[in-house]
């Protein structure tokens, strides 16, 4: 049983790290704020969720696992809000390559 849990936990940890690397790579390669945000914030959040789940499986003490799950839960709740705030700030302040947008249905309204 513990071997199975170990494998699941290892897979989750590696998956999480893969997401984190992806986030870093996207952050470096993508051309403007919006694309970087897509590449960084969300994969990093999902990666953290995977890592936290994987780590929680490794904890012997149940309360430590609960704390790890709390970190994941908070991240899950706060990440979209933070992403929205940065995105809105970037759009309103005119950062990012707004001319590169294929369609901008917000421009006509604001």
């Amino acid at each position: 049983m513990s071997a199975v849990l170990d494998v699941i936990s290892a897979v989750l940890l590696l998956l999480g790290v893969g997401f984190a690397l992806l986030a870093g790579l996207g952050l470096l390669r993508f051309p403007d704020v919006f694309s970087r945000m897509h590449a960084a914030t969300k994969p990093a959040t999902l990666g953290l969720l995977c890592v936290v789940l994987g780590a929680a499986l490794q904890m012997e003490d149940g309360s430590d696992a609960v704390k790890l799950l709390l970190v994941g839960a908070f991240q899950f709740l706060t990440a979209p809000v933070a992403a929205h705030m940065i995105g809105r700030a970037a759009y309103r302040s005119g950062t990012g390559d707004l001319d590169a947008l294929v369609v901008d249905e917000l421009k006509d309204v604001s």
Partner: peptide
């Protein structure tokens, strides 16, 4: 909805028009 969209990679809620219930969504690549 706004949170679900923002949490999904590739889409992001940029602006919310509350009275008209319209979400403005930024997409990474269409």
């Amino acid at each position: 909805l706004a949170n679900a969209i923002s949490l999904t990679p590739g889409t992001l809620t940029l602006e919310v028009d509350r009275p008209r219930s319209i979400l403005y969504v930024h997409a990474l690549d269409v």
